[in-house]
């Protein structure tokens, strides 16, 4: 689906909140939730493997059963339920290094369609980090190494040449 919400990112958002709010008393919540967050970050950065997903699930189930209070016991819920119902999204992030909802910035790549491009240079002008190089004669190209995926170029293109 097009611009729907990334469920992996959603789980990461909630877990980030939990990690911040954990009181730190018991080991599974104090360290475990942080480790789950690190794995989720790996997934949304396109650096995770299938083993990471397996470890995530195992860790999640342990934290559920071993934490002292409800905060730790329920912290894995968003993760386990999104894995249950939206596993395909997780797999897309891991295997294909793609975010189907186009939310995870690290997995996005913006490129200029040379056929549609009218070489007006507006994109380069609006790029906050100078990632678009070129000129009006030869056209423009986005340097992926510099691009921060803010989408300003896309917004400013009158010809829908950037995707």
């Amino acid at each position: 689906m097009d611009d729907t919400k990334c469920m992996v990112n959603l789980a990461k958002f909630y877990l980030g909140f939990t990690v911040d709010e954990s009181c730190g008393k018991c080991t599974p919540c104090r360290i475990g939730t942080k480790r789950m967050l690190e794995i989720l970050e790996k997934i949304t950065e396109g650096e995770a493997t299938l083993e990471d997903l397996e470890r995530l699930e195992t860790l999640a189930k342990t934290i559920q059963k071993a934490s002292v209070c409800g905060l730790g016991q329920t912290a894995p819920n968003p993760i386990l339920s999104t894995i249950k119902y939206f596993k395909d999204e997780y797999l897309a992030h891991i295997n294909n290094k793609k975010c189907p909802a186009k939310e995870c910035k690290a997995l996005l790549s913006l490129s200029i369609n040379s056929e549609k491009c009218k070489k007006c240079g507006l994109c380069a002008k609006n790029c906050p980090v100078g990632a678009i190089k070129g000129d009006r004669e030869h056209g423009y190209e986005i340097d992926e190494n510099i691009c921060i995926k803010c989408g300003a170029c896309q917004k400013n293109c009158h010809f829908s040449a950037i995707s």
Partner: peptide, 9 residues
């Protein structure tokens, strides 16, 4: 005593 919270405890 124990200070801070969460992972930063």
């Amino acid at each position: 005593d124990c200070a801070q919270r969460g992972f930063e405890s």
